[in-house]
Design a protein around this nucleic acid. Structure first.
Length: 570
RNA sequence: GAGUCCAUAGUUCAACGGAUAGAAUAAAUCCCUUCUAAGGAUUAGAUGACAGUUCGAUUCUGUCUGGGCUCACCA
């Protein structure tokens, strides 16, 4: 990597001119007039070296080793040094991009190069809504990005299949007098349990008797009472079958599904053990963690009925997750931000249980909500947007506009929705409006995919093949002199791709890749508009075909990292 | 009340402490016998308020204003 090379050289130079204790830094200037990389080191060194920044800059440049990676080094007031990568190097990288598999710089969260990304987290008997879709889009992208930079990543998914929400749903079913055997399709079944959950929730709030009954059902589920088990097992399976279809539709899968039903017993055990050890304490009939001395909230681990809460269960989940796949460097929990207090507390308790095993090993990635522009999404108000419903709506929109076949329409619809989530930072609350939010033009997946298709189309019309690519290995001189601005912009962006991927891993930010791809597509389309490819002189034509091939490859690979498929024809 | 996250064009979003704060969309104008116009070009528009740190602040710190979320037995 050129970046590393420059940094290495800067380090040597700094030592030479007597600057100590400074880590060299390189920035990527927003404005391309300022080179491919730039550093503001001279400005930072003025105090230490007691010289003015321009003098320091000149000194650094004077001592900077000559090499053919760098074409030009500029010093610009008040004290920036700008580096320009040589065309030879850029084209060499372009060649590598087209010819070989893309190679990303590595990034690891620890020595084992192994982590778990825990995501999706739908609860059975409840709707799979657009919030889950954002979660799964984010989680899947993170998994692929971390794999790309050299990690073994385990996909975990913690699904809630016991607890009050289930009891509410089952209560609803028992009181509906509806014969569930009459429900034939999965779709009907899913809609049915959705309605029953709403009915149960309403009864729980409005009717004290119903509440009592629901609590009884809840207890029966925890105790695996035969009287309720059949219904529980059957309806649970409906949900799980449905989730499987969803995961498939969104191009995701999991190495391990964790269920609350499989861990709540152990959660209770652990909570009781650490109560004895004094980590937890009794209070008002419940077992709680008193977080005050750590500046944390007090939270309940065993409720006064003797059942483990979400917190209590989490202890067992952590135990399992950290033992199922050998030693992990990190577990990334992709969960909404209102759980921040919950995770702070459970991480702390786990650390108190076994510092060596847990401390610093977990991270709560608080990705934000998808909110409705007109009010909140709430099951009580019945205005939750189901994930599949949204995709189907977008699909209709795309079918109208693009008139492509079913398979392509499906891919574009999923791509549009995923991309519209992923182009935002994880911390951004998405204000959702069905008419505006899933744009199919502008900064959107169809735009990127269209650009990809355009690249393929050009290549297909050319004689571009392996042989001509190989002939280009000696590509230099003449063509380089003719490199114009449009070509240069695309070329430089293509060179940045591996670094962008690494950055997005470091910052846990898939949106960096999304924005980069959009930038690349824009630059390529501009180039395409202004420059003929197939009708140029042979050498230029070959070079432009290389650019086209690389652009297509990078878009496809970048979209793959975001969990988005491309098509070859639109 | 305490904690936490957030505040950028009309709207929806970008911007590792750097240089002229980028896009999309909405508006106007222009480019189709075309390598896919599902595209491209041009014009106009923004950092909530006040201090501080810094050579330099949208970014860091403090106060204020306005929001979201959380703070004991739901998950």
């Amino acid at each position: 990597m050129i970046k590393e090379e420059i940094l290495k050289n800067l380090k040597i130079v700094l030592k030479k001119i007597g600057a100590t204790d400074v880590e060299p830094t390189l920035e990527k200037p927003a404005n391309s007039d300022f080179g491919d990389y730039s550093t503001s080191l001279p400005l930072k060194l003025t105090k230490q070296l007691k010289k003015n920044p321009m003098t320091i800059a000149e000194e650094i440049v004077k001592n900077f080793p000559k090499n053919d990676l760098i074409e030009k080094i500029d010093v610009i007031k008040p004290g920036f040094i700008n580096f320009w990568i040589s065309n030879v190097q850029l084209i060499n990288q372009l060649y590598i991009t087209v010819k070989n598999d893309l190679n990303y710089p590595e990034y690891h969260l620890g020595k084992n190069k192994k982590l778990m990304v825990e995501f999706a987290h739908p609860n059975t008997h409840k709707l799979f809504h657009i919030g889950h879709l954002r979660n799964i889009s984010t989680g899947e992208a993170l998994v692929r990005i971390f794999e790309a930079v050299g990690n073994k990543v385990i996909r975990g998914n913690y699904e809630g299949d016991v607890g009050l929400h289930i009891a509410k749903c089952l209560y609803g079913i028992q009181n509906s007098k509806f014969i569930i055997q009459n429900l034939k399709t999965l779709q009907e079944r899913i809609e049915f349990i959705g309605k029953m959950y709403s009915a149960g929730t309403k009864a729980y709030e409005d009717d004290p008797k119903a509440k009592e009954e629901i609590l009884r059902i809840n207890k029966m589920i925890y105790d695996r009472d035969p009287e309720i088990m059949d219904l529980w097992t059957e309806t649970r399976k409906w949900s799980l079958d449905y989730f499987d279809l969803n995961y498939k539709r969104f191009y995701s899968y999991f190495d391990r599904l964790y269920f609350e039903s499989e861990i709540h017993k152990r959660g209770l055990e652990i909570s009781k053990e650490i109560l004895k050890k004094g980590i937890l304490e009794e209070s008002q009939g419940a077992v709680v963690f008193n977080g005050k001395k750590y500046g944390l909230d007090t939270r309940v681990f065993i409720n006064s009925l003797g059942y483990p809460t979400y917190e209590g269960k989490e202890l067992a989940l952590a135990e399992k997750e950290f033992s199922d796949f050998g030693e992990l460097d990190k577990i990334i929990h992709t969960v909404t931000p209102e759980q921040t207090s919950f995770f702070k507390v459970t991480f702390k308790v786990e650390e108190l249980i076994d510092e060596k095993k847990y401390k610093g090993k977990q991270l709560h990635l608080a990705y934000e909500w998808v909110k409705l522009k007109a009010g909140k999404m709430s099951s009580r108000e019945g205005n939750i947007i189901e994930a599949n419903w949204l995709i189907d709506e977008v699909k209709k929109k795309i079918a109208e506009k693009f008139k492509c076949n079913e398979e392509t329409t499906e891919i574009l619809a999923v791509a549009s929705v995923k991309y519209s989530f992923l182009k935002n930072g994880t911390q951004t609350i998405i204000h959702f409006d069905i008419d505006e939010s899933i744009a199919v033009d502008g900064n959107s997946a169809p735009y990127l995919i269209y650009t990809y298709v355009r690249c393929q189309s050009v290549l297909n019309k050319s004689d571009f093949n392996n042989e001509t690519r190989l002939r280009l290995s000696g590509f230099d001189g003449q063509a380089i002199k003719q490199l114009n601005n449009d070509e240069s912009n695309v070329l430089r962006l293509i060179n940045q791709f591996p670094e962008i991927v690494q950055q997005s891993a470091i910052q846990l930010s898939p949106n960096l890749i999304a924005n980069y791809l959009y930038d690349l597509a824009q630059k390529y389309n501009y180039f395409y508009q202004k420059n003929k490819i197939l009708e140029s002189d042979e050498k230029i034509k070959q070079f432009r075909l290389m650019l086209t091939a690389a652009t297509g490859k990078v878009i496809k690979e970048g979209l793959y990292l975001l969990g988005i498929k491309t098509v070859d024809k639109m």
